[in-house]
């Protein structure tokens, strides 16, 4: 019988998975972009971004643009590898 690997709990959450999937497709994205695309509230998104950052899956850059604070997010190599592994395990579960 085939052994199933456990799905990464850091990614097995609706919002964190959505954020990582968005970031894997772009070079960098602003907080407002992630908020618009995921439909999440600012508070919830901030919390989940912080968790992804602590796991080393994303990089968060805080800077000023035209005198306004700007939060940029980028996926890290660790984040890309984690998503690839997650998809691989998911396909195994779904027998794809």
């Amino acid at each position: 019988m085939a052994e199933f690997n456990e799905l990464d709990p850091m990614l097995h959450s609706q919002l964190r998975l959505a954020v990582i999937s968005l970031l894997v497709s772009v070079r960098e994205a602003e907080f407002t972009f992630l908020k618009e695309k995921t439909g999440a509230t600012a508070g919830n998104l901030s919390v989940q971004l912080q968790k992804l950052k602590e796991a080393g899956y994303i990089e968060i850059i805080k800077q000023f643009k035209d005198n306004y604070p700007q939060t940029l997010c980028k996926i890290t190599l660790k984040g890309v590898t984690a998503l690839e592994e997650y998809v691989k395990n998911l396909r195994q579960y779904l027998n794809l």
Partner: peptide, 19 residues
Amino acid sequence: NKLTNTESLKIIEQMINRA
């Protein structure tokens, strides 16, 4: 939210398409 495996796959697909 708790995710089913099919939902996970759907989220990945949707988000990649949006980006």
